[in-house]
Design a protein around this nucleic acid. Structure first.
Lengths: 219, 219
DNA sequence: GCAATAGTGTCTTTCAGACAATATGTT
DNA sequence: AACATATTGTCTGAAAGACACTATTGC
């Protein structure tokens, strides 16, 4: 059971990882994970790990894929069910504070390319080697997110409860790895009826403040 | 490890099931399945079951979901990785012949509805009770198929290597559970560049024969 | 007023749905 | 020729991309 804790920070997708102390892959980064209890549902195990390793409750969490290559763990045969958890900015910061061992890795998408092979970088910008098949899992998580972006609510789970259209567009652009047309994006989001304006506006900007919107749910 | 062997027959989606002899769920239908060997990759296990229970090789097969409710098997805790195999009409008939125990159940979609709650019917049209959580797995398989229909090649895996545009449209309509506009469908399929005309035509029709097309691959 | 970003209007292109006309096999 | 279905053409409306314009805030 491994969990990809994914969010968007500084205009790029990111994931929370733990640095391994012991062999195998000592010093490499790895996804937070754990074993599934004999009387525990898979999703409950995912929520337990989310709580114990990142102090997070009430996070949107969906099953990603099950990895079962025989040699994925050099010690012994381990099958893992990977889950994808979507973190709003506040949840990322809360997790980093709750567990100082966590590091927030950036998933650098190679220049507007959709191929999915993204580089995992540590906070200093250096390439971060991942343990086991965790880089593959991370890549799949980003692809999944990309695929669901247009027709599900995943984008809203990566934002605070109130957000501007620009913030929403930034999240979409970060995950797609390419720019979007502003008027078209506005139109699409508003026409879909998923968001409602709140009547309030941003504050503390050094320019015209944008209206704040709220996710209204999908039908 | 359970496998949904899915195809389209007589204008409706169908799946190959086995009738259980022993308790629990004696007399109910169940997905073909088996246990994963200690030194066997998950996908290899799926292929093994496909071969041993249906005599099929070279079938497109993708992972569907992993089910791990604690009580899904009343005997003891069993986690299952469900796979989805896509069968062309010839493969369905070959499997039914290779293993006479198999029965081809129809997934009746409720009248142009996309909600996904389809009834599982045996060849006589009677409702077929399923063992364990297998009805849930079947429902998810159909939803997955529906979701991937428009932007992947799943439709072609459900057809013979040469097919008419009408046959392709029939497959799409069977899985969607609703009708499509014929000229628009033609245009879309041809414009996407996934198919090429072969220059040959149907035979043995009692009307104008349609051109046969071939799947060319996606890019 | 200036800088900077929010938000709008409009033109063009693309594409799906609708509908009707034409084409070409069998019987 | 009659029939049944394949195949094509055209009209219309919805939605996206491009681009330029207007609006509103802090300084």
């Amino acid at each position: 059971m491994d969990i990809v804790l994914m969010g968007v920070r500084k205009g790029a997708p990111c994931a929370l990882l733990l640095r391994r102390g012991a062999a195998p892959f000592a010093g490499h980064a790895a996804l937070p994970g754990g074993f599934v209890g004999a009387r525990e549902a898979l999703e409950d195990a995912a929520r337990r790990v989310l709580r114990d390793k990142a102090g997070l409750l009430d996070v949107r969490c969906e099953q990603l894929y099950t990895f079962g290559e025989v040699a994925r763990d050099p010690r012994r045969r381990i099958v893992t069910v990977a889950w994808l958890a979507l973190l709003a900015p506040a949840a990322i910061e809360a997790a980093l504070e709750a567990n100082p061992e966590l590091l927030c890795a950036t998933l650098a998408v190679p220049e507007g390319d959709c191929s999915g092979d993204s580089a995992v970088l540590d906070p200093t910008g250096a390439r971060l080697p991942l343990a086991f098949d965790h880089e593959q899992i991370l890549t799949l998580a980003l692809e999944r997110l990309r695929g669901k972006l247009d027709y599900t609510a995943v984008g809203f789970d990566l934002l605070p409860p109130f957000f501007t259209l620009r913030q929403l567009q930034d999240v979409h652009e970060a995950i797609r790895g390419s720019a979007l047309n502003k008027p078209a994006f506005r139109r699409r989001m508003i026409d879909k009826g998923w968001i409602t304006p709140t009547g309030t506006r941003e504050t503390r900007t050094s320019h015209r403040p944008a209206e704040l919107y709220r996710f209204r749910g999908m039908t």
